[in-house]
Simulated scan of single mutants.
Amino acid sequence: MAFPRRKTLTHWLPLLALAAACSVGSAQAQDAYPSKPVRVIVPYPAGGGTDIIARLIGTQLSQRLGQAVVVENKPGASGMLGNDTVAKAPGDGYTVLMGITAVVQIPALYKKVPYKLSDLVPVSQIAKSADLLMVPRSSGVTTLQQFVEKAKAAPGSLNYGSYGNATSSHMNGERFKQQAGIDITHIPYQGSGPEVAALLGGQLTLAFVDATAAYPYIKSDKVNILAITGAQRHPALPQVPTMTEAGYPGLEANGWFGMFAPASTPKTIVDRLGAEVAAIVKSPELNKRLTDMGLIAVGSLPEDFKAQVDKDAAHWKSVAESARISMD
Rank of each mutant, 00 (worst) to 15 (best):
H11M: 15
G49Y: 00
C22Q: 11
D51F: 01
A17Q: 01
L81G: 04
N83R: 10
L9D: 12
A108Y: 09
S124P: 09
S124W: 04
I100S: 14
G99Q: 05
P14T: 05
A46H: 03
K116Y: 03
G79A: 08
P114W: 03
A17D: 00
N83E: 11
D84P: 00
V24W: 09
D119H: 11
V71G: 02
A32V: 10
V69Y: 00
K111Y: 09
D92V: 05
K7F: 13
K112R: 09
V24L: 14
Q63L: 11
Q105D: 13
L81E: 14
Q30W: 09
A17F: 11
K116N: 14
R39Q: 15
G47H: 04
L97T: 09
L120M: 07
G82N: 06
V38P: 01
M80K: 08
K111N: 13
Y110P: 00
A27R: 13
R6S: 06
L109C: 06
V113F: 02
M80F: 10
G66E: 01
T85V: 12
D31C: 03
V121D: 08
Y44S: 11
S124C: 15
G25I: 04
P14S: 06
Q60G: 01
L81R: 12
Q30F: 10
E72V: 07
N83I: 09
P114L: 08
G76E: 14
A102K: 05
A87K: 06
G47C: 08
E72N: 10
S62R: 02
I100R: 06
H11P: 00
S124A: 15
Q105L: 11
A21W: 06
V121Y: 13
G99T: 09
V71H: 03
T8L: 15
I53N: 02
P37D: 04
K88P: 03
A17T: 10
P114Y: 03
M1T: 13
V70L: 11
G76Q: 07
R64H: 08
N83G: 07
S35H: 13
L15I: 13
Y115M: 09
V42C: 02
A17H: 00
P43I: 03
I100G: 12
A54R: 00
Q60T: 04
Y110S: 08
T101V: 05
M98S: 05
D51Y: 02
A77C: 04
S118C: 02
A87R: 06
P34Y: 04
A54I: 01
